[in-house]
Design a protein around this nucleic acid. Structure first.
Lengths: 320, 320
DNA sequence: CGGCTTGCTGCTCATATGAGCAGATCATCC
DNA sequence: GGATGATCTGCTCATATGAGCAGCAAGCCG
């Protein structure tokens, strides 16, 4: 008889034992007397009830994490760390919850980074907003992807880096360049310019990167910002894109899908993210399940901050 | 400082401690080392996390019960016993789950009844169907409310008592009478008849009764069976009826709402239910919250078998 | 500023539970 | 029917945790 199975009467006994133990708070000895079995058998029944999921223990709190999923992500993808938060009852607060978790992680990060490279986007905005004043003492922040927008998003891109730097008692260095240029030559020229070159050098020297990923759809901030049209993105999806990381579109294996577009994109390269000591990816929500997995499985990050359902989706794809 | 409150940092500490204890299965000593506090403080944080509901422990199984709600029902209403089952994910199986729980209770009942009085209706049908062959050895069953229907329901009414008796190794005694008669005189005459009088005497002598309650609406089996019209029931509701017990309509306080109708109703009286040694009411579902409370609070039963949400509703009304 | 009250902490000792083991039981195979 | 292997059980001893207490700390009031 397989140890994982139990007879129907044992199963009902384990339900009763679990009720008496957790709801009536009786000792295993007392339960044994009530049910007519030994306290050792009670212990075994409780252990099996936990294994079979008859006993469900959940940590219910806005700041709760899901440690078993974190461990599984670390082990499956070789991550240095993972932070997984439960999905809140109010789904609209999911991004904020994950941003808060990322902010918590950043504050606790040791050693404290001297220079922090950050991307821009809605998620990073939320992370910045979630960091308290004085979260660090003297952390400089540098932008790692082009952020001067063709419309109003520019002020937000700058705001993210500035907020994180100011609250961390450091300086912000912005990347004064569009995210994507129309011609490769223009990109080469602007990256050669002393002002931009200096920022890119600083970005490359950061020991910690903090970024999110974009969805491969018309709702991407790159479309909203005017760098790409919805048709552009549809073509990228056709080529296998699942999302973008610091403005660079990747497929499910973490590879660039359109080298020509990549050549016109300003900012830190994916190789540099991959070779970083610490790169923290903050990626949550159903729309980002595919790109989350691409990032985790292709060494684009050493730390993944996400929500429980995204974690399960990422791990599930691995099982198939 | 009130012992029930904790500082924000203590609250976060208790979340972390709970995660490490229940998810990573670390000892309180290990957790103390990890968090930089003593194992005694870890213990206090865990205790407070349980008290505040940060730690939620649930027994998830078709046969699970809710012991704290059972205790609260017993204490609030002076019941000898209460059985509360969780609401299943598939709400359509609620009645069946509650019926199974009632069947479990009946099988475990000690002393085993010599004669069991039963009502008829959909819920009692389910209880009968949930009892296994040989659930008892020699329990006679007697019908306690009129059951010969003016339409096809009659076969079902008889079936309930017959099934319970046969599976319990005993005899079924049916009440060969309509549930409600058109005239009081006719009711008196039929109850005086030797055949019916004998059954009513037997019903009165039963030591255990098992019954459900009907809703005060057009979906009542008494309407379906043709004894009452929807207008009749609407009038009863206007008079304060919240439901019926063995065909007798009661208000929120457990009192008969229409004495005239009651005089024409055949079967065990409410006074006899109240004076019974053991009367088991099986009442579940949102439509029956009000009549469940009326039954529990007016000594119409000594045992209530119900679902978690009905239990909460019954207890909630008491708090208002 | 001192005294008093309330609340928190770390500790000792008792209690509860788990790990590992030896023996019993059960099922399968020949 | 007997032998063998797998599984289960109750137990001993070690470990984990809780109850209650003494002392410390914090807050409040005169």
């Amino acid at each position: 008889m397989n140890g994982m199975s139990m007879t129907a009467s044992d199963e009902l006994l384990s339900v009763r034992a679990a009720e008496l133990y957790y709801e009536d708070v009786k000792t295993q000895d007392e339960i044994g007397s009530l049910l007519g079995i030994t306290r050792w058998k009670v212990g075994r029944l409780l252990a099996q009830a936990r294994e079979l999921g008859i006993i469900r223990i959940e940590i219910v709190h806005p700041r709760a994490r899901r440690l078993p999923l974190e461990r599984e992500l670390r082990e499956r993808f070789g991550l240095n760390d993972a932070v997984v938060v439960p999905v809140p009852p109010e789904i609209s607060t999911l991004q904020l919850r994950v941003a808060e978790a990322a902010a918590d992680y950043l504050q606790a990060l040791r050693p404290v980074p001297k220079t922090l490279g950050v991307s821009w986007g809605r998620t990073l905005d939320d992370v910045g907003a979630s960091l308290p004043e004085g979260w660090a003492r003297g952390v400089d922040v540098v932008q790692i992807n082009g952020g001067v927008s063709l419309n109003r998003r520019a002020s937000t891109a700058a705001t993210t880096a500035v907020t994180i730097a100011r609250r961390g008692g450091g300086h912000a260095t912005l990347l004064p360049s569009p995210a994507i240029l129309e011609r490769r030559e223009t990109r080469l020229a602007i990256e050669a310019d002393r002002t931009v070159a200096g920022v890119l050098d600083l970005a490359a020297s950061a020991s910690v990167y903090l970024y999110s990923a974009g969805v491969a759809s018309a709702s991407s901030v790159l479309v909203e910002s005017g760098y790409l049209s919805p048709d552009d993105v549809a073509e990228l999806v056709r080529k296998g894109a699942v999302g973008d990381v610091v403005g660079r579109y990747i497929d499910a294996n973490g590879n660039i899908v359109d080298p020509g577009l990549d050549e016109r994109t300003v900012g830190l390269g994916l190789d540099q993210l991959r070779s970083a000591t610490t790169s923290i990816a903050v990626i949550a929500g159903e729309a980002k399940h595919h790109v989350a997995r691409a990032v985790a499985s292709s060494s684009l990050c050493t730390v993944l901050v996400t929500d429980e359902e995204t974690a399960l989706a990422v791990l599930e794809e691995g099982r198939q």
